[in-house]
C-alpha cells in the first residue's frame, strides 16, 4: 500500500515538475509548482515526517507559490517568451541535467546496495509527532543556528527595505 502511494505521489511530483518547466504560461507554471510541492508534502508524510509535511504545505504551497503569482502579476510578464533569455541553451541544459540525474541515480543505487538492509518498517513517529523532537533540537543543540537565522531574517528585511525604497529623496 505504501509503495503504491509513494509511486502515485512521486508521479504527481515528476509530472507537475515537468509541466512547470515546459509550460509557456508563467501562471500555469506557478500552479504546477504548487502541485509539485504538494506531492512532496505527501512523500514527507510517507516518511513519517509529519511536521515537515505540514510546513511544506503551509510555506511552500501556501506562501511561496502565491508569492510567485504575485511576482508575475506585478511584473506583467505572463509569457515565457518575453522573460527568458537563455532558451537557446535548452538542449545543452537538458543533456547536463540528464547526465547529473544518471550520476545521482547510480550513486544512490550503489550506495543503497552497499548498506545494510533497511529496517522492515519505517519507525513510527513519536507520540505528538516529530514537531516535539524538532523543537527540542532547535531550542537545545541547534539553538545557535536558530538565533543566527533570526539575525539573517532581520538583515534580509533591512536590506529589502533599502533596495525597495526607490531613489526619490525620502525622509532618511
Amino acid at each position: 500500500m505504501e509503495s503504491f502511494l509513494f509511486y502515485a505521489f512521486a508521479a504527481l511530483v515528476v509530472i507537475s515538475a515537468l509541466a512547470m518547466i515546459l509550460s509557456r504560461n508563467l501562471v500555469h507554471s506557478a500552479l504546477y509548482m504548487a502541485a509539485a510541492f504538494l506531492g512532496m508534502a505527501f512523500v514527507y508524510l510517507l516518511l513519517r515526517a509529519d511536521y515537515i509535511a505540514v510546513v511544506q504545505i503551509l510555506v511552500y504551497v501556501g506562501a511561496i507559490s502565491i508569492l510567485f503569482v504575485f511576482g508575475i502579476m506585478l511584473t506583467k510578464r505572463d509569457r515565457m517568451d518575453g522573460s527568458n533569455g537563455f532558451n537557446r541553451y535548452g538542449i545543452i541544459a537538458g543533456l547536463v541535467g540528464l547526465a547529473l540525474f544518471a550520476l545521482l541515480a547510480r550513486a544512490v543505487t550503489v550506495a543503497g546496495a552497499s548498506r545494510a538492509a533497511p529496517p522492515a518498517d519505517v519507525p513510527q513517529a513519536p507520540a505528538g509527532g516529530s514537531a516535539v523532537a524538532i523543537s527540542n533540537l532547535f531550542l537545545g543543540q541547534l539553538a545557535l543556528p536558530l538565533e543566527a537565522s533570526a539575525l539573517l531574517l532581520l538583515a534580509a528585511l533591512a536590506g529589502a527595505v533599502v533596495i525597495g525604497k526607490g531613489r526619490e529623496k525620502s525622509k532618511c
Partner: peptide, 25 residues
C-alpha cells in the same frame, strides 16, 4: 555542523548582496 555552516554562509552573503547593489546612482 552543516546547519550552522549554511546559516552562517547566508548571513554573510545576503547583506553582501544588498551592499553590492547599494550605489543606487
Amino acid at each position: 555542523d552543516f546547519l550552522s555552516l549554511y546559516i552562517g554562509l547566508e548571513l554573510m552573503t545576503i547583506p553582501l548582496v544588498v551592499l553590492t547593489a547599494y550605489d543606487r546612482a
